[in-house]
Design a protein around this nucleic acid. Structure first.
Lengths: 148, 148
DNA sequence: TCTTTTGTAACTTTAATTGTCACGAAACTT
DNA sequence: AAGTTTCGTGACAATTAAAGTTACAAAAGA
């Protein structure tokens, strides 16, 4: 299956929405993400349900930020996407009869759960607003260059 | 794609090989894993290259442990499988031009790398021999029941 | 020589996301 | 009121890597 790229994609979109302010159409977002409007709507639906963005129809409509990026953690975004399945690796089978297989599964699961916990807590440590901080200088340089 | 279950599967097999001692054919292992011999051979190939097991052809042949399970960590097994791709989640695209997309990708990657590091270190903390310890009583009870 | 067993190549199946198309519904414009 | 824009959603094909399957050559024991 194609790799699930919804998390970085919607983060990217949220940053643009914040920068633009005005409503942005799914068509425009589709160009940012190099994909088509229908996929954008599907992917953004969770963010709307979570109350992070609003979508309006008709002329001048599109997607808009409802909540400041300072108040949204990456974990919130991941949850809004429905907490997509994180791992390509999993157990051999559920409820195996063989005790040795149970032990092998349990050990695998333990490592996966530890990894998932760290993934989630890493996401929780950062708001979407903070996301650009490590890149702030590069972005500022680019913008002053552009505005010149 | 079907979930990658090679790690728990080969752990399961190593435990059986240790318990049995004699060579076990791919056919027999296939029955343990509810799959077919060709897949067993493909999956076990990495363990052979790593020197953990040996495979012998002809009558009485099959797969045998070469190294004590006390000397093989789960991380060693994972590496012997070729360190399969761990995540179903990934970045939006490699080398995006957009700086905001770069920032979104970097934040995602940071969380994924932290998770991968924990996964690997969890695997490194345990040998295959230790794997059964949490289940030792259940297994002992089953065996004495069986031998009675 | 015959049988067992591995090694490997080639191909199909599987699963979940991405990508695409279509069309109804809502909201703005004139 | 009519027309245009835009979202919402359903349906289906494309993608990708592992699992599953088949076939056969090669090695080794009987």
């Amino acid at each position: 299956m194609p790799t699930d790229s919804r998390l970085p994609r919607v983060l990217h979109v949220l940053l643009h929405l914040d920068q633009i302010g005005d409503p942005v159409t799914s068509e425009q977002i589709g160009q940012m993400l190099a994909t088509n409007p229908a996929l954008v709507r599907r992917t953004m639906a969770g963010l709307r349900e979570a109350g992070f963005v609003a979508s309006t129809k008709g002329h001048g409509g599109g997607w808009q930020l409802l909540k400041p990026l300072e108040e949204i953690t990456l974990a919130d975004v991941y949850a809004a996407l429905g907490s997509p399945h994180l791992f390509a690796v999993g157990q051999s089978s559920d409820n195996p009869a063989c005790l040795l297989e149970q032990a092998a599964n349990a050990a695998t699961l333990q490592a996966l759960e530890a990894a998932r916990d760290v993934f989630q807590s890493e996401l929780a440590r950062m708001t979407v607003a903070e996301l650009v901080k490590p890149h702030a200088e590069t972005i500022k340089a680019f913008q002053s260059n552009r505005d010149r």
